[in-house]
Every structure is written in C-alpha cells, then in structure tokens.
Amino acid sequence: MARTEPTGAARSSTPASLRAVWGVLGAFLLAWDVFEVVKHTGWVIPAAALGAVLPDLSRLAGLGQATRPGQLAPRVVPLYNLLHRAVIPFAIMIVFSFLGDGPEDIAAPFTFAMSWLTNIAIARALGFGLRTPDGWQR
C-alpha cells in the first residue's frame, strides 16, 4: 500500500484530551516564565526570550529548500525533533535546580529551559508535534 502525503498544513492526531493537558501545562509555564522574568530581570530576560524561540529556530536551516505546504525540509527534521523533545528542557531545569548557591545563580538558565518547555507545550496543545523523516506531522 502506497503512503499518501498530506495536502496542506496538517496537525497531529493527538487526542483532544491530551492536547488540553498540554495547553494547561503551557499556560502554567507561561505564567511561571513571566513571574521569573519580573522577579529576576537582568540576564533572565534574554534567556527567557531565547528559550521561547529556540525550538523554532531549527526551521531556518531549511530555508531555500523546496517543500510542500505543511512540510518541513527533510534535512531539518532531526534538529527540529531534537529541539521539540520535552525531556531536554525539563532535564536542564532539574539540573539547574540543584546548582548554584542561590536562586540568582540559576535563574537565567532555569528560565531559559522553562521558556523552551513552554514553547513545546503550547505547540503540542495547538496540535504541532514531532515530524516524520520526510518532514510531515506525525
């Protein structure tokens, strides 16, 4: 049986209940991000901004490669999928929770990872997840 390619921008087939859980997590993390940025300021602000856009920066590596609507450039997929794994920013948050002598020592890298995780959670809530090797939504 031949595999048919989706036409147009397709979203994942994740159940609505799981997407709702991702949405609640994303909203909670976004509120926590804002709290941390307001509380610590300084280097936390650019760290949070970078964390918020980092997963989507991988798309820049596919510029100039011809793709169909909804398809990610196949050469970008490994990096895109790596940066959209929730376990990586979560692990960074855990590690930095135990480093440093006080909250000011870990605020920037912790908030960076939390913003990264927020991006992933919101994307999953909207139905965007990992990609197949040829660039389509799974």
Rank of each mutant, 00 (worst) to 15 (best):
I92C: 09
V77G: 02
A61L: 13
S58C: 12
T67V: 14
D105W: 04
G64F: 15
F112Q: 00
W22K: 03
H84A: 05
V87N: 06
A108C: 08
A121F: 01
S97L: 10
W136V: 04
F98I: 08
F96G: 01
P133Y: 06
P15D: 12
D33W: 01
L126Q: 03
P133K: 04
N119W: 02
A61G: 12
V21A: 14
Y80K: 12
S58V: 06
A66R: 15
G135I: 01
A113T: 02
T14P: 09
D134N: 15
N81E: 05
V21L: 09
G64D: 10
A2W: 08
D101Y: 09
I120L: 03
A61D: 05
R68K: 14
T111H: 00
I92V: 11
R11H: 12
Q65P: 06
R85M: 10
D33N: 15
W22R: 03
L29P: 00
Q137R: 05
R131K: 12
G42I: 07
D101Q: 11
A2G: 14
I122Q: 01
S97T: 08
Q65I: 11
A47K: 02
G102H: 05
P46N: 13
W43G: 04
P55A: 13
R124A: 04
L29K: 00
A113Y: 00
A2I: 13
S12N: 06
I45E: 06
D134I: 10
W116H: 01
V53R: 08
W32R: 12
S12F: 10
L29D: 03
I120G: 00
V95Q: 09
V53F: 09
L60S: 08
A66T: 14
A48G: 12
P74I: 10
I122A: 04
L63N: 11
A20I: 11
L25S: 13
G23P: 02
G129H: 02
S13K: 14
F110D: 01
A107M: 01
K39T: 15
W22E: 03
F110W: 04
V76W: 05
G100M: 05
V53T: 11
L30A: 09
V38L: 15
H40P: 04
I88G: 06
L72C: 07
R19I: 08
V38K: 11
G51E: 01
P46K: 14
A31V: 14
G64H: 07
R59K: 09
G8T: 11
H84K: 06
V38N: 14
F98K: 03
T14N: 07
G62T: 08
R3I: 14
D105F: 04
I106A: 12
T4L: 13
T7K: 15
W43Y: 14
A48P: 04
P74D: 06
Y80E: 00
A31F: 15
